[in-house]
Structure formats: structure tokens, C-alpha cells
Design a protein around this nucleic acid. Structure first.
Lengths: 147, 147
DNA sequence: GGGCTGACTTCTGTTTGCCTAAGTCAGATT
DNA sequence: AATCTGACTTAGGCAAACAGAAGTCAGCCC
């Protein structure tokens, strides 16, 4: 059946709101209220998703205190959460190309060192850029054999 | 709110079964029955998803005929569907790294020309490989201004 | 110590996703 | 004409996802 790590990934970030929350986290959102407003979901959904993503280890709930304010908690990306960036960039890239958005991408992702726009590419271990059509899928260990 | 093409993408491939169907399509599955068995979902869900993905232009329903059989239809990836590959590879890569799968990845994706394994990388337009931590997100045209 | 505020939680109700089981249907085979 | 098969559709039901409104709670400020 679905014995593939794509399915495992989807078990963690399987809902629309989870991916959207993660996108916002990657884009720099930290606070509960901001997640609710920017993602455009209700508070119960935001709370549930933040709790799940924290439990799954993609976010970390850390206390912080602004001067003159009480201590609060914000949600920071862990390494595991950071590693999810290629998925978000791939979705962003595909959506920009195929699903025309009214106002164009509202955010620009750039390489901090040189300022150029970033995107994702398929690449092989030998260092070649690979076109989607030039990827060969072969049976590996544990393939489901179909009758 | 969610004025970002990530959300637009999710509107098209928002469900677990849609992504799984697409994964199988990218991995070479063409026929209805095979989608049902390999993805591990029920026939109604498969039919609904295939219809939606076809309507959205990621799959194309083309007739074919095996000798001695009646004409049937199979689902072929369009260019738009092929372009979704980076998302699937990114999910695969993330899942392989962080969500340990019992038997390891059942399929190997390789570069047809050289045989090396393929994966996705974040890259900037200047040609640098970019670490997830070195991506800067900046406001672009149409950013939601938060009060 | 009462008010204020951001961060939730609880409640209720609707919609969506998906399952199983049981049809239907087209068209090649007999 | 009857049968078979792969590709669906229909029916009925359960569970998860989500929204909106309202309540709770912690702790700094005054």
C-alpha cells in the first residue's frame, strides 16, 4: 500500500491548516494571534495545529518577555521544521506557475548571502540538474508487488 | 489572509488522497484499479480525486486499448502534473529523513541520463546552493499588512 | 486587587473525507 | 444472447476538520 515516506510526511502535515501554519512559521510568524490572522483560520484550529506540530517536533514553544509585558510563549521552528522548507518552496513555485494568484506572490524568498531569489530544483547526486521528465523511478527494497 | 500561492496549491491538492494519487501517478501508475490498490484508498475516493485532478489539469484521461480488450481509459500526467514532482520529492526527502519508515523507501528515483539518485535542493538564481537557514523572506508586492 | 490583554479552551453545529457494500455500465469474449 | 471484467457510481454512515461565539486564565499595570 502506501509504504512510502510521502505518506509518513502527510500523516504529520496532512491538513490544509497544518501546511499553512508551517508556511507562516517559515515566513517568520511566531505568535498565536498572528498565526490566526495571517493564515485566516479560527482560533481552535490554530491552537490544535500548533499543538500537533509542536508535539511532532517541527515547532518549539519557547517563553519570551517583552519589556513591560508578562511572559508569553512563541512558536519557533526547529531544525526538523526548517527542513520542511523545500516542500513549502516547491508548493509556492508550483502555485506561482500554474495557479495564477491575483496579486502575485506577496513575499520574496532570497538567498541571505547574495540577495538572489531562491527556488527548488531537482538534482541528482552526480550534480546534474534534472528535468521532471528525466527522473526514472525504479523498484527499490520493499516495493509493493502488484499482482 | 492567505494570499499566497501555497494556499492556491493546497486548494488543488489539499487532501491526503490527492497527494498520494499524484505520487503514484508520478511513480508511473496509470490505471484506476492500480491507483486504488497502491494508494490504499476506497474506489469512491479514488474516482473523486482522479476526476478532480483531471479537471484541475494535472492528469489527462486518455483512451487506450490492449489487444483483445475493449477500449479503456488511463490517467496520464500532464506537464502541469509533472511539474508537481518537486513537491513529491521534497515530501519524500523530508519523510525519509525525519519520519523513519519501517522498510526504507520502496522506490528509488534516479536521473535517467546518469543513474544517480535524485533529490530536491533549494537554490538561488545566482546558482548557489542555499541552506534552509539562509533563506531570507522579505515583503513583496501585495503583502498582507498586519495591524 | 481589579482591569486588561493575549493566548488559549469549550461548546455547538456544519462540512468534508473517507469507508464498506452494493449496484451499474460498456463492450469484448463465448 | 449471456457472461465477464475493469471502471466506475450510489447509498449509508462514521470521524475528522473547521467555523463562530463565548468563556477561562495568567499575570503585568495601576
Amino acid at each position: 500500500m502506501a509504504n512510502c515516506s510521502v505518506a509518513a510526511s502527510i500523516d504529520v502535515v496532512g491538513t490544509r491548516s497544518a501546511i499553512l501554519i508551517l508556511r507562516e512559521a517559515i515566513f517568520g510568524t511566531r505568535r498565536f494571534e498572528d498565526f490566526v490572522h495571517r493564515v485566516g483560520i479560527g482560533e481552535p484550529a490554530a491552537a490544535a495545529r500548533l499543538k500537533e506540530l509542536t508535539a511532532a517536533g517541527l515547532l518549539e514553544r519557547v517563553p519570551y518577555q517583552e519589556p513591560g509585558q508578562r511572559t508569553r510563549h512563541e512558536y519557533q521552528l526547529t531544525t526538523k521544521g526548517m527542513d520542511f522548507q523545500p516542500v513549502v518552496h516547491a508548493l509556492l513555485q508550483w502555485g506561482s506557475k500554474w495557479e495564477t494568484d491575483e496579486a502575485g506572490p506577496p513575499l520574496r524568498a532570497t538567498h541571505r548571502a547574495c540577495g538572489a531569489a531562491v527556488g527548488v530544483r531537482i538534482r541528482c547526486d552526480a550534480g546534474h540538474d534534472v528535468d521532471p521528465g528525466d527522473v526514472a523511478i525504479e523498484p527499490g527494497p520493499g516495493l509493493i508487488t502488484v499482482s
